[in-house]
Design a protein around this nucleic acid. Structure first.
Lengths: 344, 344
DNA sequence: CTGAAAGCGCTTACAG
DNA sequence: CTGAAAGCGCTTACAG
């Protein structure tokens, strides 16, 4: 048997389509008896409105798109929990990996332009996305909020929720300096992203404040992954002068470095202190447990979702008008056993 | 200015809506000159078909839903790469966490019933999903393929792609036995899932073959996470007789156990051999690197996608007719340094 | 190769 | 509180 439509329900209940529609969407506007009768028919027939038709007719869905870099990264898990907690009941959340865009399987723009989604939370604002979004600005504004990563230049007008990456990198570097280290290097992320730049400036500033002027020369770029960390370690430990402390742009890089260190005769933290970033669940599992910079992931998700909610509910309101464009959340140094005072 | 519709394009190009529609969907059926003219207008106006209208009209989308347990788990990353490689150009892939279902933010059924998706790949077939799917069977069949986990009883009629979990657990246990261990325990997953049962039977069988009859008594149930491993370790190491080897249902459990072992004075692998499951990227990073059972993740993704493709393209064909319902892929023992022969 | 026409399943003013 | 009617933007036989 074919799926029942609203027409069929109306016929069986002896009312008009309009009334059935109201029973679904505005039950308070319907007479109690009518409502009961219609609901009974809906129950009996197993009718469910065709969401495709509904969305089409209304010109909007109730789907929020959350873009992450890749699903393998555990840091997104908490953020998305936060998002779901805020958006959960009213909106569906679909996930998209920005990675897939890079691979050329691009549905992103289709989703947006076709108004298949009502809002977007960008948990990564890497170049391919930002450019595409900007190219879209001749289309009606779609609410977009950036979480986790600070905005790229392209997206400077969008609201965002993230930590102060400059300060976080400054604090982490400062901690290593205070532990007596001088030969510190920063294994940073991919060149060019704003988040990377922020952190690099924080690193350089902390080094400069400690009287080390060539901070910028002590920055290495790596892919933000275990592989990236391993590759960086090989470049790093092959040199004549080795650092005594390493600050890494994320925990995966730090774990990669840590796995390679023994092969170069380096013990962590005796010979080499390592500091990560993100405080993923694997940081605490490392041996030795990894010191790192924690971000309030769940909170980032919740706040990003709240801002998106506001933007979706009041599309007329200029985001800049409400409050600060960027919402800055506190970070926290988590000191474990991968860092230690420099041996004299 | 409002978004142009097909009507507007037709007017500007001096043709009918039908022709514009053909230019988009069946350009080969349109005169070259006409096509060029229409395409020019499309270009100039920036027209893009409203996918919502398109999908509604066609009664189908081009969206495939992939359900994973949670995005924090790195094992899904490769699988989804595989899926995307096969499905990528023709279909959009959206991800859904089954976790969110458990939290009650259920959009799953809506997505299916409303035909907002044309196919589903279930990378977890835990109870809430399987039950809901089964309840749906009065609705038109939606192509569904199960990957990674073997089917649950509820979903016995669906095609699936996975390793032989019974054999894999048997092989892993056998390896520990061959290394001289007798006091082996299996830290299994949550009770009741079919994949767990398969592995438990494999464990018991290997133990029995080695003359250890009480294998079933040597099974512990844990949540498939680092936390689960930590909790299991506390239960386990508090006992009087401690095992000399542990086989864990996934790498996260193994890592959790490994992180706790030192607190009980247990060195890995000297006092305790630990074997994981899945070979996630973090297994190789552990200290000592974790021995584990590798699944051909990318291949699982690709094959699941191919089966789904076939099911979507030939909806009439009974899945059972094509070939075996379950496609079994080879697993592989990856022996690193967390396992060692039992000390005499 | 092209156009006129019907229709997908809903929602939404509008009138009563 | 309810119904008749129009219409959202497309696609698809059908006729020419």
């Amino acid at each position: 048997m074919p799926k029942p439509t609203i027409v069929e329900v109306a016929r069986l209940a002896g009312v008009s389509n309009s009334t059935v529609s109201r029973c679904i969407n505005n039950p308070e506007k319907v007479d109690r008896k009518t409502l009961a009768r219609v609901r009974k028919v809906i129950e009996e027939t197993g009718f469910r409105p065709n969401l495709l038709a509904q969305s089409f007719r209304r010109g909007r869905t109730d789907i929020v798109l959350v873009v992450i870099h890749n699903i393998g990264s555990s840091i997104f898990s908490d953020i998305i929990d936060g998002i779901r907690g805020v958006l959960g009941d009213r909106y569906s959340i679909i996930l998209m990996e920005s990675r897939s865009e890079e691979q050329g399987h691009s549905r992103f723009i289709d989703l947006l332009v076709a108004r298949q989604v009502v809002g977007v939370i960008l948990l990564c604002s890497s170049p391919p996305f930002s450019r595409k979004l900007v190219e879209l600005d001749n289309f009606p504004r779609l609410p977009v909020v950036i979480g986790l990563e600070p905005i790229s230049e392209d997206l400077a007008s969008l609201p965002s929720v993230h930590i102060d990456n400059h300060q976080a990198a400054f604090d982490a570097t400062r901690y290593l300096l205070d532990s007596g280290h001088r030969e510190i290097m920063f294994v940073s992320g991919e060149r060019g992203s704003l988040i990377t730049q922020d952190r690099e400036r924080g690193f350089v500033a902390a080094m400069a404040q400690a009287g080390i002027a060539d901070g910028a020369a002590r920055i290495l770029h790596a892919e933000l992954s275990i592989q990236g960390g391993i590759a960086a370690a090989h470049r790093l430990f092959g040199r004549e002068t080795r650092p005594t402390a390493l600050f890494c742009a994320n925990d995966d890089i730090a774990l990669g470095v840590m796995s390679v260190a023994p092969r170069f005769g380096l013990a962590v933290p005796a010979d080499l202190s390592i500091m990560g970033f993100d405080d993923t669940i694997y940081a605490a599992m490392a041996n030795p447990p990894l010191s790192t910079v924690a971000q309030p992931t769940r909170d980032i998700g919740e706040r990003a979702a709240r801002r998106l909610l506001r933007a979706m509910e009041r599309p007329d309101e200029t985001p800049a008008g409400t409050d600060e464009l960027a919402e800055i959340l506190p970070h926290r140094l988590v000191i474990r056993q991968s860092t230690a005072p420099r041996l004299a």
